[in-house]
């Protein structure tokens, strides 16, 4: 296991590349979800406002 983690002396280069890849993957998933959610929430908010206005009129 220690030998595997040492990556034949290249640990300080190999592991950061895999770690950074994981981070970029996670960021892309989260950012895409957030963007969709924020558009949905903005639409829902607008729709709710419209409904209220209509019920008052």
């Amino acid at each position: 296991m220690t030998e595997f983690l040492a990556m034949g002396g290249y640990a300080q280069y190999v592991w950061p590349t895999y770690g950074l890849t994981l981070i970029v993957v996670v960021i892309n998933v989260v950012a895409a979800r957030r963007r969709l959610r924020s558009v949905r929430e903005a639409l829902a908010l607008k729709a709710a406002r419209e409904r209220r206005r209509r019920s008052q009129a």
């Binding site: 990556m7 034949g8 002396g9 290249y10 280069y13 190999v14 890849t21």
Partner: peptide, 14 residues
Amino acid sequence: QGDGFRIIYVHVPS
């Protein structure tokens, strides 16, 4: 390159 070449699996696809 020993084990250093394993970076290829995240570098080339990106």
